[in-house]
Structures are given as structure tokens and as C-alpha cells.
Amino acid sequence: MSVMIANVKMRSDPDGRLLDLVREVQPDLFLAMETNEKWNQALAPLEETMPHTVSHVSDSTFGIHLFSRLALESPEIRFLAGQDTPHVVTGVTLASGETVDFLGVHPRPPLPSQPGTTLGRDAVLYKAALLLRESERTGIVAGDFNATPWETAVKEMRQIGNLQEPRRGYGYLPTFNARSWWMSWPLDHIFHEAGFATLSLERLSAFGSDHYPFVGRLCRISGRGAMPAPQTERAIIREAEQAIEAAKDRG
């Protein structure tokens, strides 16, 4: 199962390069973020080979599209943790007939000039981890997290959801900023539960956005269902739940 993600940068010109990349890679799932009506029209030809879709078009830089070759089960757009950013929550039916969970997330970035603005982002990441933890199926969460792997929220997200970090063994693989030769961080991620193994991870060529596209090729581990949730320290889960409630209150 291959998953490709790309933050298209809403104001960039959809000149066909991203469309060509998706057609070359032929992923099973393609998650596009920052999609407005212009990008909605530009990516529409993908539906010829990826007919299963769910999307939320927006001019607020938080539009989101999921294109899939595989059938989607109960796909929906959800606003996690009471935030105003849309996220994809769906089941994906594999060729074997098994259905796994997929979450596509793109929380708002924190503002360095405003202390405490990580709350909304962190709450979305925690909520995604809790959804996977509570599900009986194994799953994947992917997207532009607006966070690096070494930030506390991402570490706790992985611990809560028992999520594997595919970057281990593949290097730093920064995905932002594609327009800078010196300033770069890994902000785009594909995490999975223990029911998958990583076959390969690749940062693709730039296509005009400030993010590089990113693709992970995963293998469903034969005979293994969703792993039981680990005995995460209750304090960490409680802190995550409190962050989610605080984010909802703040709106």
C-alpha cells in the first residue's frame, strides 16, 4: 500500500508538474493539502484512475483532498479537537478485503510571535492518535503536521497511538522549505501502527510548492491485526485529553 502526500501551497500555480508526479508514482492513496477551487480543478483528472475521493475545498489554505485507487469505507471530513481545519477520517479497503484506518491531517501551524499557539495543532495530533488507539483496526496517519518529529507533541502522539516512525533508517528527509537551500525541516509525515512495515520512504522532486511531496510504501504484516494499545502512562493520555478540551474551549 503506497501513500503519497503533498502540501500544494494554495497560491502556487498548478502547472501540471504535481499531476505528472502522481501519475508517475501511481500511489494507492494521494493526500493533497491547501487545495482551493483552482487546485480542485487541476487535480480532477486523477479521478480517472483514483475514483474514490473525499475533499473539502477552501480558500483558507486548509483545503484537503484524498484520492484513492482503493475503496473508501465511510469517508468523512472531520474538524478534530474543535478546530476549524478539516481532516480526512476514513477506512480503506485493501486488495485482501481487509479494511484499515486512514487519517489525513493538516493542523494550523503555531505562531512564533504568539506564545501558546501550539495548543490547536497539538490537540489535533493528540485526537488523531486517540482515534487510532481506540479503533479495533490497524491504521495510518499522514499529512503536514506543522511539527518536527522531535517536538514533544509528536513524541507523545506516537506514544499514545503506538505509532511507528518510518524515517528511522531513511535519514532526515526534510520536506519544508523546498524553496530554501539552507532552511529545512521534516514537517510532512506518514506514521503507521504496528500492523504495517515500511518498505520504502522517498522525498520526491519539487513541483513549485514550498513543500516537497513525500511517498511511503508500506506492507501489511501478514496475520497481524490491530495491536493492543500499549500501557501508555495514564498521565500522558490525560494531558492529551485536557489539551483537546482546552483547544475546544478556545475554539
Rank of each mutant, 00 (worst) to 15 (best):
K9I: 04
M10L: 12
S12M: 09
D13I: 12
R17V: 01
L18Y: 05
L21Y: 00
L21K: 03
R23Y: 12
V25T: 10
L29R: 03
L31D: 04
A32D: 01
W39S: 02
N40H: 14
N40C: 07
N40L: 03
N40D: 14
Q41K: 14
E48K: 13
T49Q: 04
M50G: 01
P51Y: 04
H52N: 10
T53M: 14
V54F: 05
S55A: 15
T61N: 14
I64N: 01
L66Q: 07
R69G: 15
R69C: 11
R69I: 07
A71G: 11
E73D: 14
E73N: 13
S74E: 12
P75K: 03
P75W: 01
P75S: 02
L80C: 04
P86V: 05
T90M: 03
T90G: 01
G91C: 06
G91M: 04
V92K: 00
T93K: 15
G97R: 02
T99A: 08
L103N: 10
L103A: 08
L103E: 09
P109D: 09
P112R: 12
P112N: 07
P112I: 05
S113T: 15
G116D: 00
T118N: 09
L119P: 02
G120S: 01
R121W: 08
D122M: 00
V124T: 00
Y126N: 07
A128M: 08
L132K: 08
R133P: 11
R133K: 15
S135G: 06
R137Y: 08
D144C: 14
F145G: 08
N146D: 13
T148P: 03
T148N: 04
T148Y: 01
P149Q: 10
W150C: 08
E151F: 07
A153M: 13
K155E: 13
E156A: 11
R158Y: 05
R158A: 09
L163R: 01
L163N: 02
R167A: 10
G169V: 12
W181S: 08
W181D: 08
W181R: 07
W182K: 02
S184M: 06
P186L: 01
P186F: 00
L187E: 11
L187V: 13
D188I: 00
F191M: 15
G195F: 06
F207C: 11
D210A: 13
D210I: 12
F214E: 03
V215D: 06
R217M: 00
R224S: 13
R224M: 15
M227H: 11
A229K: 10
A229T: 10
T232A: 14
E233K: 13
E233A: 14
E233P: 10
I237T: 08
R238W: 09
R238A: 14
E241A: 09
A246W: 00
R250K: 12
